[in-house]
């Protein structure tokens, strides 16, 4: 899977693209866990994700647990429909920090 990255105000913003499913999620999880070795806080941008299943949600939960252990902060952004609905019916919108756009997400991390 394709993963783009940029740094905004010192915060790593990770943008996966395409499908986050049982095929691609193991690779994306390994990528994020490698990045977390150097970046205690992360922003993940969903603007280029067009599909997520429970396998992708599992990666978000594992990442959130790890970021918390590291004392950092995880903020997700640009979650459009219908992906937002998958987060919603999973109850994930109440436990994960979600913001509209990357800049706002970075501000929260730096707050």
């Amino acid at each position: 899977m394709q993963v783009n990255e940029e740094t905004i105000d010192g915060v790593l913003v990770v943008s996966p693209a395409g499908r986050l499913d049982s095929n691609t999620s193991p690779e994306f999880e390994a990528h994020l866990f490698q990045r977390m070795e150097d970046h205690p806080s992360l922003v993940i941008r969903f603007g280029d994700v067009d599909y997520i299943s429970s396998a992708g949600l599992r990666v978000m939960l594992m990442t959130a647990k790890k970021v918390k252990q590291n004392g950092g902060r995880l903020v997700l952004c640009e979650i459009g429909d219908p992906i937002r609905e998958v987060f919603e019916i999973s109850g994930f919108l109440t436990i994960l920090e979600v913001c509209d756009d990357p800049r706002g997400a970075v501000e929260r991390v730096n707050a």
Partner: peptide
Amino acid sequence: QLDGDIDSRQVGGLGIHFMKTL
């Protein structure tokens, strides 16, 4: 399991939950 905080949440069973919901 649809509630609980980040530490206690597990993902198991979500796929069947989607089936029942959708």
